[in-house]
């Protein structure tokens, strides 16, 4: 596999193919990040595109101090925060818990596997919604760490703060999420639904 640095250099020389390789390599990760942060596929797609475009346009400013992936995450992260800030002024409605439950009960149970999959999807959908109720800074570290599985150092570089901040913020985020989930404990942690 060609290292990112080489590809970046090629891009700077005007190679379109090199950038295409980078897009191929990172589109899923960036899409996941934006999807988990924004909780909506359309916005995630739009912001993923925007992030890559920004990266391409600003490739000349990329100094190589951090890894390309970190830099790319950072761009996507900033875009997401902007989007979330915009949303705070104009809140997006989500499914209420009550509607969620009704949705679960209406799932037909003819094929047990399909039903289980369906329920599992619904639960994880609900998890996403709960996630969305966390403050953006906590949500970000949580997603970067537990969804994207990035190291503390990478997270620190992406959100632009110290390791200590990452640690404490992550701790706060996890506990806040735990508290929110425990209110719906039987949905998330009952046997059968959650099996690892």
């Amino acid at each position: 596999m060609v290292p990112d640095e080489v590809l970046v250099k090629e891009c700077r020389r005007g190679s379109r193919e090199a950038f295409a390789v980078l897009v191929e390599r990172y589109q899923a990760k960036i899409y996941n990040l934006t999807y988990r942060l924004l909780g909506n596929a359309d916005d995630a797609e739009e912001l993923t595109q925007e992030a890559f475009c920004r990266a391409f346009a600003k490739l000349g400013e990329f100094r190589g101090e951090a890894a390309f992936s970190t830099w790319l995450y950072r761009i996507a992260h900033n875009l997401c925060l902007d989007e979330l800030r915009r949303r705070q002024r104009r809140p997006v409605l989500s499914l209420s818990e009550h509607e969620m439950r009704r949705y679960l009960e209406e799932v037909p149970g003819e094929n047990p596997e399909a039903a289980e999959l369906c329920v599992r999807r619904a639960v994880l959908g609900r998890l996403q919604e709960v996630l969305a109720t966390l403050p953006p800074d906590q949500r970000t570290v949580l997603v970067l760490r537990d969804v994207q599985d990035l190291s503390y150092e990478e997270i620190a570089q992406i959100i632009g703060c110290s390791l200590g901040t990452v640690k404490s913020r992550l701790n706060r985020a996890r506990r806040a999420l735990r508290d929110k989930l425990s209110a719906e404990r039987e949905l998330f942690f009952s046997d059968g639904v959650y099996s690892g």
Binding site: A28, L131, D146, V147, L177, G196
Partner: peptide, 16 residues
């Protein structure tokens, strides 16, 4: 906490 983290980790990778 571990339970919560594992739950979050179980969030499937959405494919673009």
């Amino acid at each position: 906490l571990k339970e919560t983290i594992d739950l979050v980790r179980s969030l499937e990778h959405v494919s673009p």
